[in-house]
Design a protein around this nucleic acid. Sequence first.
DNA 1: GGTACTATCACATAATGATGTTAGAACTTC
DNA 2: GAAGTTCTAACATCATTATGTGATAGTACC
Lengths: 209, 209
Amino acid sequence: MAQVGIIEDNKKIRQLMQRYLNMQKDMSCPVATECVEDMLDYLSTYPNPNVLLMDIQLPGMSGIEGMKIIQQKYPDIEIIMLTVYHDSHKIFESLKAGASGYLLKHTSLPEIKDAIELLMQGGAPMSPQIARKVITHFNYRGQKKQKSNLTNREQDIVNGLVDGLSYKLIADRLNISIDTVRAHIRNIYKKLHVNSKAEVIAKSLRGEL
Amino acid sequence: MAQVGIIEDNKKIRQLMQRYLNMQKDMSCPVATECVEDMLDYLSTYPNPNVLLMDIQLPGMSGIEGMKIIQQKYPDIEIIMLTVYHDSHKIFESLKAGASGYLLKHTSLPEIKDAIELLMQGGAPMSPQIARKVITHFNYRGQKKQKSNLTNREQDIVNGLVDGLSYKLIADRLNISIDTVRAHIRNIYKKLHVNSKAEVIAKSLRGEL
DNA sequence: GGTACTATCACATAATGATGTTAGAACTTC
DNA sequence: GAAGTTCTAACATCATTATGTGATAGTACC
């Protein structure tokens, strides 16, 4: 059963959403406030919501600040940001602050309902445009530092190291001798300017290869 | 008009998907291969697809390696990974390598069709479970302290290992004896059920502590 | 006062890793 | 066809790490 709280400063939208959600089965919306402060007041007495829909731009405390506080006090509440911002910075701020979903405001009421259900099932509702930005973010970070040019074979060795294998096991996995593994590792160290397995693993997992 | 290519080693699935996509309007699937190599052959002659659906686990070159190559040669092709893996590492590898979407394999044919349409409109198709992992990933980076069964001191040691330090250097850094470092590491291995430095570093950097 | 957990140090041995040197076969490039 | 790169392999040597066993001491909880 989803108990939804709403924080939205536009009175019409707020009331419309609350009414709509209360009409759904397996869902209720006992509270809808216009700012974070009011919601905190409410929660301190009735901490019943398990989902919060909230705007980013709000009178008083901003949605992102508010989310951080709510997350800390009520870690079981999942938060969906519902906003007009396409701005990557705001999106990532929200996600880092602990949002479980991020929807654009033109999202229809039935879609919002779907999003809440998705969240209850362990998914993360996200508008496709948002998902796109998030993915692009990964691409950027990934390509940014992609300058070391390990050969395929060397990458195989690195993968073995990352998997925690010993030289011997890497040799077995690749069907080559342990001395060959050593030779490759020496070359890898040279290319990456490191001198231990640990540094190679760290670089690899940080996406610096 | 979406021109879709498929790389999938299971013949039944491959043919089913191809037939289904060819039945859709505004969509065609001129090619479906069982491995990356075959697709590269095809593309070198007919570089018509603008979307690729591909598995991660494939005979020959892995999907992730394959994607990197295809992305480099044909940067206009958008790629949707279609796989059984829930594994965070694989997901992020794929996204970093340039995937535009990531769907779990139980996704139905109509949902795959929707995903392709979404992609054409500039969105990023992602299974909700995947989106959840991606978002969780952001949370990690935002927060510093995870729930860790390791004691503070043990965490200090792990940090040293991640930095690529030898036991001796860790001992120096923490002003304790090398034997103490050893003792801590033994306890860490026990707690994490691992038996090598490499695995500890990997776990740590994946945020699994 | 006992139990549990943590942190510290020591000794010993076997396994693994780091580094140097050398070198043949396969392949690409100029 | 010479030059360079990659992958392969061997031998040697020293350093580091993994693992076992044992011990002391403080803190915390009940």
